[in-house]
Amino acid sequence: MGKMSPVPDEVSKPFWDACNEGKLIVQNCAGCKGNDGKDWLQHPPQAACYKCGTTENLTWKEMNGRGKIHGYSTMYDSRIRSLQEDQPFIIAVIELEDAPEIKMFSHLPGTPVDDDVPVGGTVQVEFQDTLGTEQKVAEWRVVS
């Protein structure tokens, strides 16, 4: 897939650098807990914690790299020029095993475009090259 390369900014750079090192990290506010009493995680990363609004406790947590297909749609007519030659393609929503409230996108490499995309199936992260720069992005492959 002809993915555009994300251009990191001050807030997102640690996330994208981690992708280049083969690690999946998510922003964490050490001062906050989620409703379930677990770590407060947020993605996409923000300049401040969006629960407490402060910046001083923001840090990063590495995720285990597993997730689940939450849902998807299949794109036939994208606005993104670099993706148009690969149409139709799946755009899946992945929820992280470590933090189901965190969602990421995937083209589900290896999964054919048909009506049998395994919603609820387990996926494993991998890191894929992009078109414009050396930047890698997180992608997800069905493992069961």
Partner: peptide, 8 residues
Amino acid sequence: QWTNPWGW
């Protein structure tokens, strides 16, 4: 950066 690589 969070959406365009996937066409979301």
